[in-house]
Simulated assay, not measured.
Amino acid sequence: MPSWEGKSKGSKFGYSCFVFLLKHGGVLPAYLLLRFVACYYFIFSWSSSKPIYHYFRTKVGYSRWRALWALYRNYYVFGQTLIDKVVVMADIPNSFTFEFEGEHYLREMIAGSKGGILLSAHLGNWEVAGHLFKRLQTRVNIVMFDGEHQRIKTYLSGVTGDRNMNIIVIKDDLSHIYAINEALSNQELVCMHADRFLPGNKTETLSFLGKDARFPMGPFLLAATFRVPVSVVFAFKESSRHYHFYATAPRLYHGRRNEGVTAALQDFTREVAEKVRRYPVQWFNYYNFWE
Score class of each variant (00 low, 15 high):
1 M>Y: 09
1 M>T: 11
1 M>A: 14
4 W>D: 10
4 W>A: 02
4 W>H: 11
7 K>F: 05
8 S>M: 13
9 K>D: 08
9 K>V: 10
13 F>S: 15
13 F>T: 15
13 F>N: 14
17 C>K: 11
22 L>H: 11
30 A>V: 01
33 L>W: 04
35 R>I: 12
35 R>F: 08
36 F>H: 10
37 V>W: 05
38 A>D: 06
40 Y>D: 11
40 Y>L: 15
41 Y>G: 00
43 I>W: 12
44 F>L: 14
46 W>D: 11
47 S>A: 13
59 K>T: 02
59 K>W: 01
60 V>M: 06
62 Y>S: 10
62 Y>K: 15
64 R>N: 04
69 W>S: 15
72 Y>A: 03
76 Y>D: 11
80 Q>W: 13
82 L>C: 09
82 L>I: 12
83 I>T: 12
83 I>H: 09
87 V>N: 04
98 F>D: 04
100 F>Q: 07
103 E>K: 14
104 H>Q: 14
105 Y>D: 01
106 L>A: 07
107 R>Y: 04
110 I>E: 12
113 S>Y: 02
119 L>Q: 03
121 A>E: 09
123 L>F: 03
124 G>H: 05
125 N>H: 06
130 G>T: 02
133 F>N: 02
133 F>K: 05
134 K>V: 01
138 T>G: 03
140 V>I: 14
143 V>S: 00
143 V>A: 00
145 F>L: 01
146 D>M: 02
147 G>L: 01
149 H>Q: 13
151 R>N: 10
151 R>V: 02
159 V>D: 00
161 G>K: 10
161 G>D: 10
164 N>V: 03
164 N>T: 03
167 I>A: 09
169 V>M: 12
172 D>Q: 15
184 L>Q: 09
192 M>H: 00
193 H>D: 02
193 H>Q: 13
193 H>K: 11
199 P>R: 14
200 G>K: 06
201 N>F: 06
208 F>N: 10
214 R>K: 10
218 G>S: 15
220 F>Q: 05
224 A>R: 02
224 A>C: 02
225 T>V: 07
238 E>D: 06
238 E>H: 07
248 T>A: 12
248 T>N: 10
250 P>N: 00
254 H>V: 08
264 A>Q: 03
268 F>G: 05
268 F>T: 02
270 R>T: 11
273 A>C: 09
274 E>F: 06
275 K>H: 13
278 R>L: 07
281 V>D: 12
282 Q>V: 08
282 Q>N: 13
283 W>S: 09
283 W>Y: 09
283 W>M: 06
